[in-house]
Design a protein around this nucleic acid. Structure first.
Length: 488
RNA sequence: GCGCCUCUAGCUCAAUGGCAGAGCAACGGACUCUUAAUCCGCAGGUUCAGGGUUCGAAUCCCUGGGGGCGCACCA
């Protein structure tokens, strides 16, 4: 178990005393980045005559007798501080600032003889005393336990981590802007659900005391969003935190973020186009290119992405032609031959075919591909395929072997939806913890009329992983779910 | 839930059965243009916890805990 610097007691007391001198507010007039923007072009040894005030954390210090240099880092970047006994108030104090302390500095903008843009410290104020250190100044903090449990330390110690979370923020911001530009309206729907629905997943349960009832944390916002389409929001989206009571891995966190959107009058073909355009747009805007590297391999996100049916892809990768009309025993035999170990008696052809696909094909799909036309049996909210029997108009976008998006032409027929719900409820009664229940509120909404609608869900964390080039979902979630530290 | 790996100073890491160490940070000092500054000095440890084997355990074994990766589940 990693713990960071605990200075000896006498020192902690001295540091604690420093806190009593901390001012209540401070007013910097520049960020370090704006200083560079404004003054980077001046000559070495130049003096500008411009006095500025900046603030941040002192991350490095280099003393040189009656001179001292420091690196002041703020959220925008860093700038060198240049202090000297001849011009800096309380120079001795300046040389004793602990690395990690927050300080505010006022002084002239200069460039040193060596050409480093600097603030020539006239006065300085301690804004926080760091009683714990920020790790090795060269190697940072690499202990992943510390990085995830004490993210505040990771963010200061590791520039790459800071960049990833800035990229995440810009991704969501760009996504929101792009959708709003296309007439999509952002909404917020409940996270407490009386009936868990919208995805096949085990929900978390909680309890409301005043209502005296159990509630479920949402596994998807889907049903509420489609009710809003019924209500006249023709283009609607939510960036939704959802909760699934399932395993943790480098690709799964129990709470994660999904973009879900619904577009009236559209079908799943429109959703494909929207998906590839949105992802390519984000890559261009944030990375400047759609040709990226992921896990050491090239990956091109430029549209159009390949479109292929699920059964064609299975044939391509497993060398076997499956068909939903084949006898289920034959499909089970094929599944076993391809390494599907647990095959439940209750599975119909659709579920068995999906298992074959997931076992043999999904992880091998690298470049973006729309895997189209899923079995109806495993897609209780998607509309029947207009041509292919027993399948629905649904696709998953697979990128780098992972599901990035899931979309359908939405099922709009309330009678058919009820039949699908009842089948789900039967499966649930038979022990399938991921099956859905009958949602009467949703069925009543459908009775009011859902027009043809395309719906799309994108895993935001996984999208950020792709754009940031990181391979663990914990590197894109600020505070990932962890076991609590053992109390000592 | 299962398997493999891992846990040593605040951080990053050595020491693999034989005296627990280094660099950085911290602390004291030298140095008027440094860039991970440099140099000198000082201090810092229940080697994750508990048990066992052994003349001797950071090292080998067992149990427990944290973490990582993989499998399973899933997005």
């Amino acid at each position: 178990m990693a713990h960071l610097a605990r200075p000896p007691p006498h020192l902690r007391k001295e540091r604690a005393r420093l806190v009593t001198d901390i001012p209540y507010r401070f007013e910097p007039d520049r960020s370090t980045a704006s200083l560079h923007e404004e003054f980077d072009r001046i000559e070495p040894a130049a003096e500008t005559g411009v006095t500025v005030t900046v603030a941040g954390r002192l991350m490095l210090r280099r003393e040189q007798g009656k001179l001292a240099f420091g690196e002041l880092r703020d959220s925008s970047g860093a700038v060198q501080l240049f202090a000297g006994a001849a011009w800096t108030e309380d120079f001795d104090g300046f040389t004793r600032i602990s690395l990690g302390d927050w300080i505010g500095v006022t002084g002239e903008v200069v460039k040193t003889k060596r050409g480093e843009l600097s603030v020539k410290v006239a006065t300085w104020t301690r804004l926080a005393a760091a009683r714990q250190g920020f790790g090795d100044k060269w190697r940072g903090v690499t202990d992943v336990d510390t990085r995830y449990r004490q993210r505040e330390v990771d963010l200061w110690a590791n520039e790459s981590s800071r960049r990833v979370f800035q990229l995440r923020s810009r991704t969501i911001s760009s996504m929101r802007r792009w959708l709003e530009d296309r007439g999509f309206v952002e909404v917020e729907t409940p996270t407490f659900h009386v009936v868990p629905g919208g995805a096949l997943a085990k929900p978390f349960t909680t309890h409301h005391n005043a209502l005296g009832m159990d509630l479920f944390l949402r596994v998807a916002p889907e049903l509420f969003l489609k009710r809003l389409v019924v209500g006249g929001f023709e283009r609607v989206f939510e960036i939704a935190r959802v909760f699934r009571n399932e395993g943790l891995s480098t690709r799964h966190n129990p709470e994660f973020t999904m973009l879900e959107l619904y577009q009236a009058y559209a079908d799943y073909g429109d959703m494909m186009q929207l998906t590839e355009e949105l992802v390519a747009h984000l890559a261009r805007e944030l990375l400047g290119t759609t040709s990226i590297q992921y896990a050491g391999q090239p990956l091109d996100l430029a549209p159009p992405w390949r479109r292929a049916t699920l059964v064609d892809l299975v044939e391509e990768h497993a060398g076997v032609r499956v068909d939903l009309r084949m006898p289920v025993d034959e499909l089970r035999r094929i599944a076993r031959e391809h390494g599907v170990e647990k095959i439940d008696e209750s599975w119909g052809p659709g579920k068995v075919v999906l298992e074959i696909y997931e076992k043999t094909t999904e992880s091998k799909l690298w470049g973006p591909v729309f895997v189209c036309d899923y079995p109806r049996e495993v897609s209780p909210l998607a509309r029947d395929h207009r041509e292919v029997p027993d399948t629905v108009e649904r696709f998953e976008a697979i990128v780098a072997g992972r599901e990035l998006a899931n979309a359908f032409s939405e099922l709009v027929d309330p009678d058919e939806q009820r039949r699908r719900f009842v089948a789900q409820a039967d499966a649930k009664a038979a022990g399938d913890e991921e099956a859905m229940a009958v949602d009467e509120d949703y069925l009543r909404a459908l009775e009011h009329g859902l027009p043809p609608t395309g719906g799309l869900g994108i895993g935001v964390d996984r999208l950020v992983m792709l754009l940031a080039g990181v391979e663990s979902i914990r590197d894109v979630i600020l505070f990932p779910t962890l076991r609590p530290e053992a109390s000592s």
